[in-house]
Design a protein around this nucleic acid. Structure first.
Length: 719
DNA sequence: AGCACGCCGACT
DNA sequence: GTCGGCGTGCTC
């Protein structure tokens, strides 16, 4: 009797063998229902075998092999295996995270196959129709190539009935899905940089990684669209990854209108479960020719994959921060390599990892230095030194003046402050008391309007104390500035202006963000105060001034990636200022106007900044010069976590060239009443690090952790 | 991760 | 006498 090796959603890094009556290689990648202990689980067949792996265990039979969805193809299974090995995560859990959640449900799932209709002899059919039957002639013209039912129905109300009649007499035949011709694609005219980029991507025979570096307005999307058009014309599929922001529907719209004849599968968070599963199935069957989605879409089976695109590749949302801590960007590159197709990583401010890869010649560096719209000017940056300046309520007189100018011209201003709430600290000047969260190692943020103190890390809330809980002094004051306070300050300063605040607090209600965007578009808002929510994507035609304040904390942060993130954020928010007809201006209020980061922004020179950062990381020994992994542990008391990590470290194999550091408390030691510590492992050699981690995790899984929760993070974004 | 099995405290 | 607390161990 044959056996199947099944991946199950359990935290055990192995497969489970089951007996089955009859099985073929075609069942690999299929869903199966199997008994597991006392329960019944859905698993994925990873392999078929003649004998069980372990002769010593009693093998149970499979309950059912489900044939409701396309089996996961071999290349997808191989990618998942690679992912499991790379991130040291149990294979069963990797397989199950990669599937649309709908497939974890035992209930069968069915997606009708896309049927196409085509005339057996279009000329003969046309000849048989009276000349005055205009609709019928139009229908026959369409039927020269295979068409979907939906397309045909669009011709007229009776079109479908006509087609059915023709099918009955054999004039029209039904076929299974076939790659339909993509039709005439009219793209925009490309400038020299864009043309070079499209050619560079297209000329790549087989795998090639391209770092497409171009500022906002340089026309990256148009490069994507034309590279995709070439891939579609060759009958292949394109995979497009986007960050997890609510901008995806806009981009989706642009793709759909450019390729109206092509089926596009959208796989992002605003797509419901069932729809998501259906999109997945269509991609796996090759019916959907473009897959556009967030992180998880990188695992979508695509039999005719021809191109992979990762938009805004530097975006942190590509790295999953719990469970399987994978980087979709890195998996995209790995996938493209395995499929032997080009991959494009696009960004105005590439991650230092990708930039370094390009500098080393592993990626091809394609620059878009020209503006896609002729005549459009980049925003003008101005640094405003605040150190000895006569500031009022956190605003420099020049800033106030610049805002007043915009108000006089009926233009909009955006004030960017990446700190929500009224003030970040509540302080007693008498005894020095600070409002702290009892569950986290963090200060409580003042939310004055609601009269509450809130922890932005764990969600804890309490009433704003009328007097100091330490000494009873009534003079407790909010210190520092958040978006709420800035909103108040501006409203007082410009009483006739409409000031609107946009952050997670002001847009909590469903649809309120969209409503706010509309108000801005309609010109009903003069001054916008907002966090990074406003930094991405949205175009506001009347916005000509961006003011940045409170950004200095990113300059001298303990987190070595803070500067990289700050640069990206500021470059992004600056992109909101100005359109073709109104050149934009960006004012940065800073104590350190001479800082190289600001100077690089001013000079529009990301490469200078990246090179400098890279040199620093070389000196300090940080990624991407070397590679890291972090073992994190959390327990009720810090000491328990540290003790556990000490024991874990003792299990770590001694591998030449791999350093295991001592356990240290995490940056946020206490979070939601749990105390956390970590062990950093690093090496200049990725293979050595990999083999060390594999041996280490094998040893770790023999031990039992007790009440300690632990996880391994390979290529961590934050320490 | 579930879930069962197992061995000690306050209840109808 | 038993309901149930969660420690320990197993899952093809």
């Amino acid at each position: 009797m044959p056996f199947v090796r099944v991946a199950l959603d359990v935290p055990l890094d192995r497969l489970f063998d089951y007996a089955v009556e009859a099985v073929t290689a075609a069942d690999v990648g299929r869903r199966v229902v199997v008994p597991f202990g006392s329960r019944s689980l859905v698993g994925i067949v990873m392999a078929v075998a003649d004998a069980p792996e372990d002769a010593g265990v009693a093998i149970k039979p499979v309950d059912a092999i489900l044939e409701d969805m396309p089996a996961l193809p071999a290349d997808t299974l191989a990618l998942l295996r690679f992912c499991a090995d790379y991130y040291q995560h149990p294979i069963g859990q990797v397989v199950h995270t990669a599937l649309p959640s709908r497939f974890r449900d035992i209930a069968p799932f069915h997606v009708a196959e896309a049927l196409r209709y085509v005339a057996t002899d279009a000329a003969a059919l046309a000849a048989a129709i009276p000349a005055r039957a205009v609709m019928q002639h139009r229908l026959v013209a369409m039927l020269a190539v295979p068409r979907s039912e939906a397309e045909l129905r669009r011709v007229s109300g009776t079109a479908w009935k006509t087609v059915q009649a023709w099918m009955a007499d054999g004039s029209v035949a039904v076929t299974r899905h076939e790659a339909a011709p993509i039709g005439d694609i009219v793209g925009l005219t490309l400038n020299a940089d864009q043309t070079a980029a499209v050619q560079s991507i297209g000329s790549g025979k087989g795998f090639g990684a391209h770092l497409l570096q171009g500022i906002t307005g340089s026309g990256k999307t148009e490069v994507y669209l034309q590279a995709i058009a070439a891939v579609l014309a060759a009958g292949k599929q394109a995979l497009v990854l986007v960050p997890e922001i609510n901008l995806t529907p806009q981009l989706e719209g642009r793709f759909r209108s450019r390729f109206p004849m092509v089926e596009l599968a959208a796989l992002h968070s605003s797509v419901a479960d069932g729809e998501r599963a259906a999109a997945w199935v269509k991609a796996a069957r090759g019916e959907a020719r473009i897959v556009l989605g967030t992180r998880l879409a990188v695992f979508t089976p695509m039999p005719a994959l021809g191109l992979v695109i990762v938009d805004e590749e530097h975006d942190a949302s590509y790295k999953q921060q719990d469970g399987l801590r994978y980087s979709a960007r890195d998996m995209a590159v790995a996938r493209a390599k395995r499929a032997d197709v080009p991959v494009v990583l696009g960004s105005a401010t590439p991650s230092l990892e990708s930039w370094h890869n390009a500098a080393q010649g592993r990626y091809r560096h394609d620059y878009l230095r020209l503006r896609a719209t002729p005549g459009a000017k980049p925003p003008a940056w101005r640094l405003i030194g605040t150190r000895h300046a006569p500031m009022t309520d956190g605003l420099h007189p020049m800033t106030v003046g610049a805002i007043a100018e915009r108000l006089a011209r009926c233009e909009q201003t955006l004030i960017f402050l990446n700190r929500r709430g009224y003030a970040p600290v509540m302080h007693c000047s008498e005894c020095g008391w600070l409002a702290a969260c009892t569950r986290c190692s963090a200060r409580l943020t003042v939310h004055l309007r609601e009269g509450r103190l809130r922890c932005h890390h764990c969600g804890w809330e309490e009433r704003l104390p009328p007097r100091c809980p330490g000494c009873g002094n009534a003079d407790v004051k909010p210190v520092g500035q958040g978006t709420q306070r800035l909103e108040d300050v501006l409203a007082a300063r410009f009483p006739h202006a409409c000031v609107m605040r946009i952050d997670r607090d002001s847009t909590r209600r469903k649809g309120s963000f969209e409503a706010a965007l509309k108000a801005i578009h309609d010109g009903r808002v003069d001054i916008l105060v907002g966090t990074q929510m406003l930094a991405k994507g949205h175009d506001f035609p009347k916005l000509t001034l961006v003011v940045v304040t409170g950004a200095d904390s990113g300059l001298y942060s303990a987190d070595y990636r803070a500067a990289e993130r700050l640069f990206a954020q500021l470059a992004q928010v600056a992109g909101r200022a100005g359109r073709a007809e109104h050149p934009g201006e960006v004012l940065v209020q800073t104590d350190f106007p001479e800082h190289p980061l600001y100077q690089a922004l001013l000079a529009d020179d990301y490469d200078a900044f990246a090179q400098r950062e890279l040199d620093e990381r070389q000196l300090a020994g940080f990624p991407p010069i070397l590679h890291q992994a972090v073992l994190r542990a959390e327990a009720a008391k810090l000491e328990e976590a540290v003790t556990f990590l000490r024991k874990a470290s003792s299990l770590a194999p001694n591998v030449e060239g791999v350093t295991v550091w001592d356990p240290v408390p995490a940056t946020m030691t206490r979070l939601a009443n749990r105390e956390r510590a970590q062990v950093l492992v690093q090496s200049h050699s990725r293979p050595r690090l990999q083999s060390m981690l594999a041996a280490w995790m094998l040893a770790m899984r023999q031990e039992r952790a007790g009440k300690i929760r632990w996880s391994l993070d390979v290529d961590p974004l934050e320490l």
